[in-house]
Computed example of a mutant assay.
Amino acid sequence: MTRLDQLQSRLTATLSPVVCELHDDSAAHAGHAGAASGGGHYNLKIISHQFEGLNRISRHRLVYDAIGDMMHTEVHALAIVALAPSEIPT
């Protein structure tokens, strides 16, 4: 299982998202000092009912909790857009 698959799996299992778009942007950061540790750079757009009524910081905490120890070893940078379904225009 790839690192991207592991992240996706943890996010899906923990947050049951309606949408979970996770992109690996590590190649764009090659040579960056943080990339030397082997941690990747990722962009995440996640929509989950669990985010209803929560502020941005609380939503980000839920994401960080979902990926757990990977945040300190496998992930160097994670850009997060976390929304509740009610925030998506119809």
Rank of each mutant, 00 (worst) to 15 (best):
N43K: 15
Q50W: 02
Q6A: 07
T73P: 10
H72S: 10
G68T: 08
I46D: 10
E87L: 13
L7W: 00
M70C: 02
S58R: 12
I57L: 13
S16N: 15
H60P: 09
L15S: 10
T2S: 15
H32L: 03
A35N: 11
V81H: 13
I57S: 15
Y42A: 00
G31C: 03
A82N: 11
D65G: 00
A33M: 04
R61C: 05
A66M: 10
I47Q: 12
G53S: 04
H23P: 01
A77I: 05
K45L: 13
R61W: 10
G31H: 01
A33S: 06
L7Y: 01
G53E: 00
N43T: 15
D65A: 07
S9F: 04
S26G: 08
Y64W: 02
S58C: 14
L54R: 00
D69M: 00
R10I: 03
S37D: 04
L7Q: 01
A66T: 09
G68D: 11
L7T: 04
C20H: 07
T2W: 02
L22D: 01
D24A: 04
S48Y: 06
H76Y: 13
R56V: 14
I46R: 12
E21I: 08
V19W: 08
H32D: 07
H49M: 11
L78S: 02
M1N: 12
S26M: 04
T90M: 08
L54Q: 06
A27Y: 04
